[in-house]
Design a protein around this nucleic acid. Sequence first.
DNA 1: TTGACTTTTAAACAAACGTTTGAAACAAAT
DNA 2: ATTTGTTTCAAACGTTTGTTTAAAAGTCAA
Lengths: 210, 210
Amino acid sequence: MTETGGSHSTKERILEKAEALFAERGFHGVSIREITTAAKCNMASVHYHFNNKLNLYLEVFRSRWIPREKRMYDAFLASLAEEKEPSPSEVITALAHAYLKGPLTDEENRRHRQLIVRELYTPTEAFKLAADETLRPLFKTLYGLLKPSVYNGSEGNLTFDIMSIFGIVLYLNYSRPMVSLITGKGYDDTFKTLLIDHMVRFSMNGLSTE
Amino acid sequence: MTETGGSHSTKERILEKAEALFAERGFHGVSIREITTAAKCNMASVHYHFNNKLNLYLEVFRSRWIPREKRMYDAFLASLAEEKEPSPSEVITALAHAYLKGPLTDEENRRHRQLIVRELYTPTEAFKLAADETLRPLFKTLYGLLKPSVYNGSEGNLTFDIMSIFGIVLYLNYSRPMVSLITGKGYDDTFKTLLIDHMVRFSMNGLSTE
DNA sequence: TTGACTTTTAAACAAACGTTTGAAACAAAT
DNA sequence: ATTTGTTTCAAACGTTTGTTTAAAAGTCAA
């Protein structure tokens, strides 16, 4: 167990390339040969470091996806730290910012979402990992932040509201082929700003009760 | 070219099982052997009727997905036909109904969405087919229906609004593992009614300008 | 330098893949 | 009954798949 480190050990290179390829084409769409060729190492290294292909896929979530999601969650919390009781508008703005212009590069962001979207719609074991460690806690935090300021009828409504906001953020952020098809625009910085403004406005309206 | 018909020719059985399996696990996650075993026919039949696997996948969209989406579109239009100038609320209600309680069975509906969601996030040739024949026309219809009644600032806003509504409907309808995880409930009929009410309320609020 | 340990490698493995083949089964018309 | 054309089939094709093996290369303390 030397973990020779260096900034790019074989193990890390495999994880990096595996994530990129799994995000692009899914678990079944990628072969180990493809991953190890991209990572410039021998095919057997995958089995030496990760036992098998499925566990490599899960390890991408454990050691890359979940920590990265937590970084975004922290960035979201940090931008709220100044206010003691942030308004719903501030909460949603912080959320949209963290997810569209957060600490991740565009490419990281893209991979990150593609991985989880596959799991959202047809879950494997990785979904449970992500749900337990990041998605559910984020939801609970949002619920706690919004609950004091928002009253809109029965108990369950806020739950639906938050899920709708998730839906908007996810869809506008990651159905990019569809959004680009309809709007005819790419995701440059001004377009993202427009999108964030829209998300906040639409979501804030959605939350209002009368 | 006999097309012996009968209610379930080999060709139709292949298409049916192929759709179910592609929806469940994606193009790469399903083998021709698996499809033909499920369809109770020989493996070579796929190549006799569809030339190859990719074309079978595309044919699922051409001969099943697109006509089915058009049926839902028609159901949506039909439920609006009574009103001459339907209000936004009526439009959105009709939309949510067509997509959650429309002419499709639950199982059909599930497959239908899973197929297109895969394409939304990582498009293949099938995305272009679906976009040209159904998604873009639906968007334009919605735009035309909502435009007269909704004024909310600049031109582009309505476009974003409609996409947000898409996002909500898609997410709440088809990220069922996530929604069930958060709410702890299954998609029975009363839950769906709740969801539709919520979608309409949230979307209507979102559309409002002041 | 030796020796114990970790990591990487080339080569091979059985199994599964999409595709092709050529003959059998079937249908309809002459 | 024979012919013609369509549809199905079992069997095999060459590749590619995930995985295993056993040896080579590398690392580092004694």
